[in-house]
């Protein structure tokens, strides 16, 4: 009988986590700017840079890369750069990043404009970035 309850519990937990993760996917948030680690600072370009943090073990990072590099190609003043943090856990920790892909929109002086968890939604992201693009 315990097994039946365990199975029902597991189904309920998986459903709840799944709905929560789907809701979080591509959500834009704003964090306090932090002191940027050198590998991130090195990527900053004039205008706004979308720094995408990825790892080897991340399948959707490829989708995020396609969306973001296409968006950057079509938008003036926007650059996309990918940083593989598989071997740079300190960089991820310093930025408060716990999951990949996470994308940080940073101005050329290193100020964080916004960040996106998961695969970004193109139009929503562009609308949020618009005020910061020159």
């Amino acid at each position: 009988m315990t097994g039946v309850w365990a199975l029902l519990g597991a189904l309920a937990v998986a459903g709840a986590i799944g709905v929560l993760l789907k809701a979080r996917e591509g959500r834009i948030s704003r964090n306090e700017s932090v002191d940027l680690p050198a590998p991130v600072r090195d990527l900053l370009a004039p205008g706004v840079t979308l720094v995408q943090l990825s790892t080897t073990f991340c399948a959707p990072c490829r989708h995020a890369k396609v969306i973001l590099s296409d968006l950057a190609d079509r938008t003036d003043g926007l650059t996309h750069a990918e940083l593989d943090v598989t071997n740079l856990p300190d960089v991820a920790a310093a930025l408060g990043v716990m999951r990949t892909p996470t994308t940080l929109a940073l101005t050329d002086d290193g100020t964080e404009v916004l960040r996106v968890g998961g695969v970004p939604k193109r139009d929503t992201l562009l609308a949020a970035l618009q005020p910061h693009l020159r």
Binding site: G18, K22, T55, C58, V85, V97, M98, R99, T100
Partner: peptide, 15 residues
């Protein structure tokens, strides 16, 4: 849900 476990837990495990 197509959850990518490596995306969610790899950095946490590393930490």
């Amino acid at each position: 849900f197509g959850l990518c476990l490596g995306c969610e837990v790899y950095l946490l495990l590393r930490r």
